[in-house]
């Protein structure tokens, strides 16, 4: 907790001077992705999950994280890749107030610092796929890193809205 606050403060200070933030870089189907470190609570090994009825396929189910029940999503399935597990597979537990959930990734790579200037806007490719969940693109060691907006990527808002609708009908 303290550590996080500390990181938060460091980040706020950093942001005031040179606008750089720290990101967690992870791999998913041979691609590099990044999410803001501040939104991450912890990384755990692939847990046992319990399926929830009537939920989309990328919703793996719920897990017990030291007494707290947390929903787990399969990012591979959501982004249209084939589901795969290895010894490197990990679950990143994220906090996007008021949502707290975990996403399954292929492997966690490293923490990286990105200057705001390093992140280029999402290339405006004419595609049928809604790419809104990509916040921007950064270059690192000849590789592209896609900065993700996780709640958007998982269509969490849609999922909640859908449930509400179902409950109301």
């Amino acid at each position: 907790m303290n550590e996080r606050t500390h990181q938060g403060l460091a980040l706020v200070k950093g942001a005031a001077s040179s606008h750089h933030s720290r990101y967690l870089r992870f791999r998913l189907a041979e691609e590099d992705f990044a999410i803001p470190l501040l939104s991450i609570r912890e990384v755990v090994a692939m847990p046992e999950t319990t399926r929830v009825p009537h939920t989309p396929a990328h919703f793996l189910g719920i897990m017990n994280l030291r007494g707290q029940i947390i929903s787990i999503f399969d990012l591979r399935a959501k982004l249209g890749f084939k589901s795969e597990r290895s010894s490197e597979t990990a679950v990143v537990i994220c906090d996007f107030e008021p949502l707290r959930f975990g996403v399954v990734v292929d492997s966690v790579e490293a923490v990286m610092t990105l200057d705001d200037a390093d992140i280029a806007p999402r290339p405006d490719v004419d595609t049928r796929v809604n790419a809104e969940y990509i916040q921007g693109v950064a270059r690192r060691d000849q590789r592209l890193v896609l900065v993700l907006d996780l709640p958007k990527a998982l269509s969490l808002e849609d999922l909640i809205a859908m449930k509400k609708l179902a409950a109301a009908s």
Binding site: M63, N64, Q68, S71, I160, K163, A166
Partner: peptide, 26 residues
């Protein structure tokens, strides 16, 4: 246990629980 809002609204599901062996259940 409280469930996240993405599960809570499911009809027929009233909450979550942790079973004796540590797995989560609805």
């Amino acid at each position: 246990k409280r469930l996240g809002s993405e599960v809570r609204q499911s009809r027929g599901v009233t909450g979550g629980a942790v079973l004796g062996d540590g797995t989560a259940a609805l």
